[in-house]
Design a protein around this nucleic acid. Structure first.
Lengths: 221, 221
DNA sequence: CAAACCCTGTGACTTGGTCACATACGGTCC
DNA sequence: GGACCGTATGTGACCAAGTCACAGGGTTTG
């Protein structure tokens, strides 16, 4: 990809004046990261504002007992704004970010970021919008963990992570880490779904046979 | 309070150039809100950046089943940055903010906020720092709700909310709302603490008699 | 004082998380 | 093909936490 091309991935940036766009393009660089790369984690923070071009990054938290929970995902067209905020500001991250796939991203150095924030209301709007989307995500996670039933959350997550054919390649352990619960809990719930004929399972694989039933559970009051 | 005085409450603003400070002071106004005021909530957002002078504001989430959880508190010297981000950007708030005490705050209109963000790197730093502190708070809430035992969380909260004499004026219901759990759960845990001689309780009142024991539980691995 | 309202206590039950194993499946290496 | 090994899944017992229903006991208010 030529460095000039990536702007087209970000509708929020289209309205930037030409001079700012060129400054952005000139001082940023496109980075490639292989799947599995740890992008940041407790004690290690990036020094640039990140715009995702290809791939997805998973941001998660790990407890001292080894349990995990996925906070949100950053995918193509998103910015990883929270990362930047946290690194600009306060203390260490408790969360970590992992490249789930091969990733291509634009890295905007802090100085450039600060300069463009100062010069462009459109860029500020872009950044704050990205912020607030993430914060909304976090609010949703809190609400679900605190108040929602595990079967409902699992149904939601299965629908989210399935491809158009209703096919999912995740182990029970991975699903447990998505929701911040234990593997056995997922196994039991999946057995129940299977008993009802909503899904079929095999080692590392789940297929949704009755998406409507799952959807109804997922949106249940 | 004279409008020029409030700047002294915010160390992060001391380094602002004089012209920016005067712009800030000129276009902002000090607002007073009585205890119990709902500052924002789902479907209602403020239109200004808020700096707290006196009092505390509680930001919480309410589930459809009526259970509540406190996300964080904003007190004197803090800015309510998340509010602003969410209102600048994305969709509706799921959370609501309530004045816990009488509150005095500086309201900076959106236009002024945007202008000063553009002009002052110091102000940007101030804002992003406030952001990241809140995000860190949210990460901590998620970690606790997802992974921490309720007795540990209750011990922490009792220590947090007690005055220097170890005195707390909260009902079991209010403590349940702090932690996002049910009233009965709090009642049972408090009975257990009392049975161990760590606290004494009366209607609407808790007194900590062995803070060390609570502290040990609160920091338990 | 009585009624209404809030705060607290309690038992029975359901859901979810933990622990300790038992199996079963998918590879690789002779 | 068969032995072996690491990972994935199944299961039962148990504990922790949330739900439901209801009973008293204070406090406040008319």
């Amino acid at each position: 990809m030529h460095s000039e091309d990536w702007v087209s991935h970000f509708p929020g940036l289209h309205s930037l004046p030409d001079d700012i766009l060129s400054a952005l393009i000139a001082s940023s660089r496109v980075v490639q990261l292989p799947a599995g790369t740890r992008i940041f984690g407790p004690g290690h923070a990036p020094d640039a504002f990140i715009l995702m071009l290809r791939g997805t990054v998973r941001v998660q938290q790990v407890s001292d007992t080894g349990r995990e929970i996925v906070l949100y995902r950053v995918s193509a067209g998103d910015s990883c704004a929270l990362t930047t905020a946290c690194l600009m500001g306060y203390d260490d991250y408790q969360a970590e970010a992992l490249a789930e796939t091969d990733v291509a991203a634009v890295a905007i150095p802090r100085a450039t970021f600060d300069d463009i924030i100062a010069r462009s209301p459109e860029f500020r709007r872009f950044v704050f919008t990205a912020f607030s989307r993430r914060v909304t995500d976090l609010f949703r996670v809190i609400e679900e963990v605190a108040f929602a039933r595990i079967d409902v959350r699992l149904a939601q997550r299965l629908l989210e992570r399935a491809n158009t054919a209703g096919h999912i390649e995740l182990t029970h352990q991975q699903l447990a880490a998505e929701l911040g619960t234990a593997r056995e809990v997922i196994s039991r719930q999946l057995n129940e779904f299977q008993r009802r004929g909503w899904i079929t399972t095999a080692r590392g694989v789940i297929d949704i046979t009755q998406p409507e039933a799952l959807r109804q559970l997922a949106t249940a009051p």
